[in-house]
Design a protein around this nucleic acid. Structure first.
Lengths: 355, 355
DNA sequence: CGAGTCCATATGAACGTTCAAATCACGCGT
DNA sequence: ACGCGTGATTTGAACGTTCATATGGACTCG
């Protein structure tokens, strides 16, 4: 191509020259197409395509004094990401932010629950604002962000300050109420609750749902670990008894109960109803009825808040996903034959004793 | 503060004026501290701190003609992220990229396995290059990136072109060999393999490890889903028999086998050895021995490649994490009593029949 | 028929940094 | 005393866009 001088990035000026208009007109074509006469619009767009012009992000950002990205702090749980709804949330958020032309910039904050990483990202204009998650009591971020006038929106209520209506959250109470109703309809008797230790607002919210709908019953708390849940499940299962059911504040907790049930030879659903929360893969794996969080809707709402749309806070209802763990009917019994041992070299080392 | 005119972002010029040096010197202090005399360095740094100066990312990027970010395509698996090692990888990558001053920019590509999203991100200078994952046969990305001269590095071998040594990967074969040795040492007899359908390079690699170390045995393939694995487990379990063991290409597959074992009243470990791959939460949940991928090391290596450090390709060895599923001893039997039924309102609706 | 309005497009300037090259200060050998 | 190399610092220009404002022309209305 004669005249193409060296390796010169094609800029807005090249397009302008080619199309016989000015810089600004090309700029308008890109950013405010309705300010441009239809004929001009078409011409310029043709030349943009022909020259393969793509606006420079950096130049645009500099001039606009903006960052074009929302920060999002990632959990640093190491490899253990069990029941971590947020990984899925990031995907939704990223996909939906893209349509508005924004990026999601993930970052890993220093362990101390402080605000310094947020400050630095803002100061260098790496981000325009934040999406925050894992809100809890004592979280210093919301107040600070409001005080600094930084745009932000939360996945999760701002528990310390109800006046900050910049969040989308899932109505855990409503979800659990639906779960309890579902279990009652299934004919389960005593309905117990396994939650997290008091003080977690999310957990307390879910517990309230259970309390309201069931009127109370046996309950226990455990940490967000299978083992911990399995331990307290021993008593709890005894208390609700066969024909009863247990609603859990999370799939992880439910998985602990499930493991205990399996260990003592009971089957979730047939013998004891079991419902988790979050509808993680874990739930699917073990056939656990669970409450699915509408992450796409949360992402949309959060982005709407960031775009300063006049939507207020939102409390979205999770969806009950029914699996075998809340179905009282006898599940299809799988073949129960002992497997043959065609080549058990050294099999005698294994204490036999099958159940 | 008199003299502070309006809301004027503190720039490099302000610092220069305050410190009595030129723009460029301040710039050097930030980017090339060794080019600056120690005394000047100290002074300038003091003023930087005093004024709270943070360089503008956009300005820097514009002048440098760079993006300061590496793109990373997210999997769009919806909520189902079972055994998805990549979520953890993103966290590692983000954390480690930050120390070099780079960002990781996640994006969600259009479903077609094409290269257009990559092209657009580059054209607008949103990213300087890419970290790619999920490499497989027929992946158009590596060849295209090489052809375009775009910096990139892969988590996963470039299966179609061994000459592209821009990757870090986990040596699945070596991992599986270690697993087989471990099972043999534990005294398990026939050692079978459950893999993915042939054609997946990762799966084939892992299978080869099993074949080499075990010399062959019963095998089967299933899709990366619990159900699929549980179905084929029926035959496979029968074939290896009690006292045998099964190595799986993933935790998900192993979970399927595990579920089947549980259903037929066998206990993984005690009756049949079981090893998974990836050491996901799932493994921890069900006490599954698994191979843990060194994600932090992979992230480091990938970033080194992107930084043009003269490290070649890397094949890192996964670590065997031993849990009960590969321990032949009788596990501690949990209490086996039938739970009392204190308030079984409607419990008669539940067919009893406990094992 | 001339002032007022409106729309499309054009021009000058600025966003804040870093590159490339120039300048300055200093010490050293001859 | 002079020129020269070296290292520290400064200066001019440029990166590519968008804001604020100006210009030009068509159309309206008293």
């Amino acid at each position: 191509m004669p005249g193409t001088r060296g390796s010169h990035r094609v800029t807005i000026v090249d397009v302008a020259r080619a199309a016989g208009v000015s810089r600004q007109t090309v700029s308008n074509v890109i950013n405010y197409p309705d300010r441009v006469a239809p004929a001009t619009l078409a011409t310029v767009e043709r030349h943009i395509a022909e020259l393969g012009f793509h606006p420079s992000r950096a130049a645009s950002l500099l001039r606009r004094e903006t960052a074009g990205a929302w920060g999002f702090e990632l959990d640093t749980l190491g490899t253990r990401r069990l029941g971590n709804i947020l990984d899925s949330f990031v995907v939704e958020l990223t996909a939906r932010a893209a349509v508005t032309g924004a990026h999601i910039m993930p970052f890993v904050a220093s362990p101390s629950m402080s605000v310094t990483d947020y400050r630095d990202l803002l100061a260098g204009r790496h981000v325009d604002g934040f999406v925050i998650a894992n809100t809890a009591h004592g979280d210093p971020r919301p107040a600070w962000l409001v005080e600094q006038g930084v745009p932000f929106a939360a996945f999760g209520r701002i528990w310390d300050d109800p006046t900050i209506e910049r969040y989308a959250d899932v109505d855990g109470g409503a979800g659990v109420r639906a779960a309890v109703r579902h279990l009652k309809q299934g004919g389960y008797g005593t309905i117990g609750f396994l939650g997290w230790p008091t003080g977690s607002p999310v957990g307390d919210d879910r517990r309230r749902g259970w309390l309201t709908e069931s009127g109370g019953g046996p309950e226990a708390t455990a940490y967000q670990e299978i083992d911990s849940a399995a331990r307290v499940a021993v008593d709890l299962v005894r208390q609700v008894g066969k024909g009863g059911a247990i609603v859990c504040a999370s799939d992880v907790l439910a998985a602990g109960v499930w493991r205990h049930l399996t260990e003592i030879g009971l089957v979730a659903g047939r013998d004891i109803g079991l419902v988790g929360f979050d509808d993680t893969d874990l739930a699917e794996t073990i056939g656990l009825t669970s409450l699915s969080q509408p992450l796409a809707a949360v992402a949309d709402h959060v982005l709407a808040l960031l775009a300063d749309e006049p939507v207020g806070a939102a409390l979205l209802t999770p969806e009950l996903v029914v699996r075998t763990s809340s179905i009282p009917q006898e599940p299809q019994v799988s073949s129960f034959d002992l497997p043959r041992s065609p080549d058990p070299a050294g099999s005698d080392q294994h204490p036999g004793g099958t159940a």
